[in-house]
Write a protein that binds this DNA or RNA. Structure first.
Lengths: 301, 301
DNA sequence: CACCGTCATAGACGGTGTCTATGCATCACG
DNA sequence: CGTGATGCATAGACACCGTCTATGACGGTG
């Protein structure tokens, strides 16, 4: 039995197919067939039931899979720690980012990150909070940028910066004349994102949950939402970093009376060995965002 | 990196010496030296500080050792679990059984199965033929006991025993006086099971499909059917193993002139890897039913 | 009926883990 | 300060095994 074999098992279990799994492992399909057969003989256990088109893990395989994943994860940890010992700030770094943050934050921080951490190959991965947490726990991400509060005892997090919310209005809207908009006033015709976006819940919470009735329309993306508001379908509440995009869409932005906002945090697994890399990435992002935070404190972004 | 290499690391860490560690691993000392050096080069980390007499793990090695132990422990767990799973006559065995067979067969074969295959945890699953075939193909059953003929090329089956049908009559019925009942005579007032039961189709086929018009009432279960017949609503045709239950309900049973009956088969997926378990289960059931088959040949069950 | 996708099998090749033989460094000791 | 003992490193030979390409068997599909 070999670590390589274990990775083969995981690949087949994931792809449900020998050929795809072989491709994913970078070997030929016959090689994979032979290796799995040898492994099955060595273990004395049939791992997969081959039936024409489909390859289904046997119950025996299911009972082994946990340990297989464990062994592979530990092996990966060894490699990661070794790399970290050579140079903590080098290697691939998979960073999850929520969709209401990624398009506005990444352009800001990508260059500074490359400059400060040239050896760190940052791979952004954009998805909603729950999906990111899942991938994080599955060791498919090294860290994630989230706007939610706590994530369980197996994860750790650190606040990077505060992002105030802004009222986004069509120019002709009755509230556009005010210098500051009260959150409760927004609630009457607020448009929110689709389920799963943390911004949706936060926007509704800031406005006292009222907007729910008024808006059956729930946009899948923030940019769609901005265009909907620009077309006069209602108002919305946007994160500060999206101010530029909102202005480009022709919207009027106003600070909120109660200064509602969200806190962007970087989150990682509690046992993650490359803490230095997480810290460094967090530092760079927080440093890049500091001028914006001061601007927000002054009431304009 | 290799699981073998990881065991080498642990051996050296334990013995504090290459030669002893090599001996413990069953390899020569030069081999161990070479392998560790290669591993150190691959990881880019010096693992042991060789100082003349003493071999001391580096700090880097200390930080890796936990993961190394973890990986080796998981690998050992895989081997241990596989050893447990090696016996095909052990573990869960999900056996589908049709409703017109289960209540009468299970009490007969459950004890013999436990006696002959003590490590096999048989989980009966009672449902109609089509549902069982679906679950079988979906890998949610290991095998099924059916009374139908063929099931497609992706499945295989083996006959276990023949089960003759019997005419079941109320004692006061006009046919009750006959020693043998002709199938066609039953057709006039036969009651049958609801759609989906294979016994329904087989009973109608045996009687020439005639009974369909006479009986708008279609029972959902065989025991309901027996009670309906006992109450004088008609006659019916029951599988031999239900004879006891029918007599308990106060019915008169008569053999059929054309000796209609059904064949109980055990069916499994063509590619199912635990053939030995299927064979063993089939053998035990067939052996238990052999005395009944002789009794049926003599005309009474 | 031919074609495509899938897994299994066969034979050839190259890498690598293993061995034995030997060299080198360190340490104990007379 | 030699000398032997002990322990790790190096070198070359060999065998195994993981890999490849080519091909076969099987099932589904146009």
């Amino acid at each position: 039995m070999n670590l390589r074999d274990l990775r083969y098992i995981l690949a087949i279990a994931e792809h449900g197919q020998f050929s795809r799994a072989a491709e994913a492992c970078g070997i030929s399909q016959p090689t994979l067939s032979v290796q799995i057969r040898k492994l099955e003989e060595a273990l004395g256990v049939t791992l997969f039931e081959r039936g024409g088109k489909s390859v289904v893990p046997t119950e025996a395989c299911d009972r082994l899979l946990g340990h297989v994943r464990g062994a592979v994860a530990e092996a990966d940890a060894i490699l990661a720690v070794a790399r970290d010992l050579r140079d903590p700030l080098a290697g691939r770094f998979r960073l999850g980012i929520i969709p209401t943050l990624a398009p506005y934050l990444l352009p800001l921080v990508f260059a500074p990150l490359r400059a400060a951490l040239p050896a760190l190959e940052i791979e952004p991965w954009e998805d909603q909070t729950l999906a990111l947490l899942e991938r994080l726990r599955a060791h498919q991400l090294d860290a994630a940028l989230l706007a939610t509060e706590e994530d369980g005892p197996d994860l750790a997090g650190e606040a990077l910066f505060e992002e105030p919310f802004l009222a986004a209005l069509p120019p002709e809207h009755r509230l556009a004349g005010q210098a500051v908009v009260d959150e409760a006033d927004l609630a009457q015709d607020i448009l929110v994102l689709a389920d799963g976006h943390c911004l949706r819940d936060q926007a509704l919470a800031a406005c006292g949950q009222a907007g729910l009735l008024g808006s059956t329309l729930r946009s899948a993306s923030l940019s769609t939402l901005l265009n909907m508001v620009a077309a006069g379908y209602g108002t919305t509440l946007i994160p500060g970093l999206a101010a530029g995009a909102a202005q480009d869409a022709g919207l009027v932005l106003r600070p909120l009376a109660a200064r509602a906002g969200r806190c962007i945090r970087i989150v990682w697994r509690a046992g993650y060995p490359r803490r230095a890399a997480v810290e460094a990435v967090g530092q760079v992002i927080a440093a890049r965002l500091r001028p914006f935070a001061q601007g927000a404190a002054a009431g304009a972004v």
